[in-house]
C-alpha cells in the first residue's frame, strides 16, 4: 500500500540535498564574515612574517575565498570534515565523541516530553473549556515561560546544593570506583541524567501538549468520534482509541520540528550541567572562530533536521489516510 510514488520520493531527496548544499554555502559565508579568525590564537607575537605565512598556508587561509569554498564543498561530499585548529584533532572524531552525549540527554528528554505532553494534551483537548483544562493549561504555559537555565539553577539549588541527592554535572562518575558492567554504567548514567532530564523535561513537554490539545479538540467534532460514541463505547475508549490516534498526527510533525529546537536547549543546558555535548561544542567553536568545527557541527544538525523533515513526510502519509503525496505530479 505505497502511497508515495518513487518519483516524488526521488524529487524530495534531491531537493533536501540541494537544501543542505545551500545551508552549507550560507554558513560558509556567515562564519567567515565574523570578525577574527582562529589564526589569531595560533600566532605568537615573536613570530616572523614567514612563520605566520606558513601557519596560514597550513590551514589553507592563503587561498582565495572562492577556492576555499570549493575545497570545502568537495571535502564535505566525500565526508572529510577536516581538522580542528583548537582541538587539533580530526573534526569527525570530535563529532563522534560529542554527538552521542547530546543524543542521550536530549533523546531521553524528548521521549519523556513526547509521552507526557500528548497525554496531557489529549486530556485537556478532550475536556477543553473545563476548569481543569483552564488551570492545567495556564500552569503549563507558566512552565513553558521559564528560562531553562534559571529553572535548572533552581533544581540544582534544591536537589544538589540543599538536599545533596543528585549530581549537578557530567554524564558519568569521573573516576569510577565501582565495577564497570553494563548495569553499573547504566545506573551511573541515569543517576547523572536525573537532574538535567528533570530540568529540560519540566519545560519541554509543554511543546507537545500545545500541539496535541487543539488537535484533540478538532477531532472531537469528527464524524467517527460521534459514531464511536453512538455505538455506546465508553468515553475513555472513544478518547483513547478513536480520537487520540487521529489527533496524534500533527504531534508527529511537531516532534520533528521539535528536534530542530533540541540544539537550542542543548546550547544552554549542557553548559549548566557540564555536559560536554554538541551544544557546548558549537558555541565554543563559534566563539573561538574554529571554522572547521563550527561548520561540521552546523552541518550535522542541519543534516539531521533536513533528513527528519523528509522522514516526516513519509510518516505523515502513513498516519493520515487523507494525505497522498505524489499524485498528479
Amino acid at each position: 500500500m505505497t502511497r508515495i510514488s518513487g518519483r516524488y520520493l526521488a524529487k524530495r531527496i534531491v531537493v533536501s540535498y540541494l537544501t543542505l548544499l545551500v545551508i552549507m554555502s550560507l554558513l560558509f559565508v556567515l562564519l567567515r564574515s565574523m570578525p577574527g579568525s582562529f589564526i589569531t590564537s595560533m600566532i605568537n607575537p615573536q613570530m616572523t612574517r614567514e612563520q605566520i605565512e606558513r601557519i596560514r598556508e597550513t590551514w589553507g587561509l592563503n587561498e582565495p575565498l572562492w577556492r576555499q569554498y570549493v575545497q570545502f564543498m568537495i571535502n564535505y561530499q566525500t565526508g572529510d570534515f577536516g581538522r580542528s585548529p583548537t582541538y587539533s584533532t580530526a573534526v569527525s572524531e570530535l563529532m563522534l565523541r560529542r554527538l552521542p552525549r547530546t543524543l542521550i540527554l536530549f533523546g531521553s528528554t524528548f521521549i519523556v516530553g513526547y509521552i507526557v505532553g500528548p497525554l496531557v494534551g489529549m486530556y485537556l483537548g478532550w475536556w477543553r473549556g473545563s476548569n481543569k483544562d483552564k488551570s492545567i493549561f495556564s500552569s503549563s504555559l507558566l512552565m513553558y515561560s521559564m528560562p531553562s537555565f534559571w529553572i535548572a539553577w533552581l533544581f540544582i539549588w534544591l536537589f544538589n546544593y540543599h538536599l545533596g541527592w543528585l549530581p549537578s554535572s557530567y554524564m558519568f562518575t569521573q573516576f569510577p570506583e565501582f565495577e564497570w558492567t553494563a548495569f553499573t554504567v547504566m545506573r551511573d548514567v541515569l543517576y547523572h541524567l536525573a537532574l538535567p532530564l528533570l530540568s529540560v523535561s519540566f519545560i519541554g513537554w509543554v511543546g507537545a501538549m500545545l500541539i496535541m490539545r487543539p488537535s484533540m479538540n478538532n477531532v472531537t467534532e469528527e464524524g467517527y468520534v460521534f459514531l464511536a460514541r453512538a455505538k455506546g463505547l465508553s468515553e475513555r475508549t472513544v478518547m483513547l482509541k478513536h480520537a487520540a490516534r487521529n489527533a496524534l498526527i500533527p504531534v508527529a510533525t511537531g516532534a520533528i520540528v521539535g528536534l530542530a529546537f533540541i540544539i537550542d536547549g542543548a546550547v544552554v543546558i549542557e553548559n549548566v550541567f557540564s555536559w560536554p555535548g554538541m551544544g557546548q561544542l558549537i558555541v565554543n567553536a563559534v566563539l573561538s572562530r574554529d571554522f572547521p568545527v563550527a561548520q561540521a557541527a552546523f552541518f550535522v544538525i542541519a543534516a539531521l533536521i533536513v533528513v527528519m523533515r523528509l522522514f516526516t513526510d513519509v510518516v505523515y502519509t502513513y498516519l493520515d489516510p487523507r494525505i497522498k503525496f505524489g499524485e498528479g505530479e
Binding site: S169, Y170, Q174, N271, V272, S274, W275
Partner: peptide, 10 residues
C-alpha cells in the same frame, strides 16, 4: 585526577 567543569559555579 583532573575534572573539567563547564562553569565557574560548578
Amino acid at each position: 585526577r583532573i575534572s573539567v567543569y563547564s562553569s565557574e559555579s560548578a
